[in-house]
Computed example of a mutant assay.
Amino acid sequence: MSFSSMSKQQVLDAGEGAGEEVVELIPGLPEEVAEKCLLHLPFLYHRLFRTVSSTWNRFLTDAPAKPPPLAPAAAAAAAAVSVSFSLPFLFAFAFDPASRRLQCQALDPFSRRWLLLPPVPGGAAAGSFAVVGLPRRGEIYVIGGVEEGGDKAVRSVAVYSAARNGWEEAAAMRTPRGYMAAGEVGGRVVVAGEDGEAEVFDPEAGRWLPAAPRCGAAVARYDAAAAGGKLYVTEGWAWPFERAPRGAVYDAAADSWREMARGMREGWTGSCAVAGGRMYIVAEYGEWRLKRYDEARDEWRMVAGGGVPPEVRRPHVVAGEVGEVAGGRRRIYVVGAGLDVAVGTVSAAAAAGAPPPHDVEEEVVEWEVVKGPAEFAGLAPCNAQVLYA
Rank of each mutant, 00 (worst) to 15 (best):
M1S: 14
S7W: 03
K8C: 13
K8G: 03
A18H: 13
V23A: 11
I26W: 14
A34P: 10
P42V: 05
L44R: 08
L44F: 05
R47N: 08
R47Q: 06
T51R: 07
T55D: 01
N57I: 00
F59G: 07
L60E: 07
L60D: 07
L60K: 04
T61Y: 12
T61S: 12
P64K: 10
K66W: 10
P68M: 12
P68A: 14
A74Y: 07
S84I: 05
S84R: 15
L87I: 03
L90Q: 02
F95E: 13
R100V: 03
R101Q: 15
L102C: 13
C104H: 01
W114R: 10
L116I: 04
L117N: 12
L117V: 01
A125Q: 13
F129E: 14
A130C: 15
R136M: 13
E139G: 01
I143V: 14
G144F: 10
V146T: 15
G149M: 00
D151E: 10
K152I: 07
V154C: 12
A163R: 11
W167Y: 09
W167I: 02
A170T: 02
M173V: 12
P176N: 03
G178W: 06
Y179P: 02
Y179N: 10
E197M: 07
E199T: 08
E204R: 14
R214Y: 12
A217P: 02
R221F: 04
Y222Q: 12
E235A: 05
G236F: 03
A252L: 15
M260E: 11
M260H: 07
W268N: 03
G270F: 04
S271N: 06
C272V: 15
G277S: 05
M279Y: 00
I281C: 11
V282D: 07
W288Y: 15
E299G: 06
G306P: 05
G307M: 09
G307V: 04
G307C: 12
G307L: 09
V308A: 04
E311V: 05
V312N: 07
P315V: 05
A319K: 09
G320L: 02
V322Y: 06
G323F: 03
V325W: 12
R329G: 13
G336F: 10
L339A: 03
V343S: 11
V346G: 02
S347V: 01
A349H: 08
A350K: 15
P355C: 09
P357F: 02
D359F: 11
V365D: 02
E366W: 00
E368P: 02
G372N: 10
G372R: 00
L379T: 05
C382M: 05
N383V: 00
Q385T: 00
V386M: 13
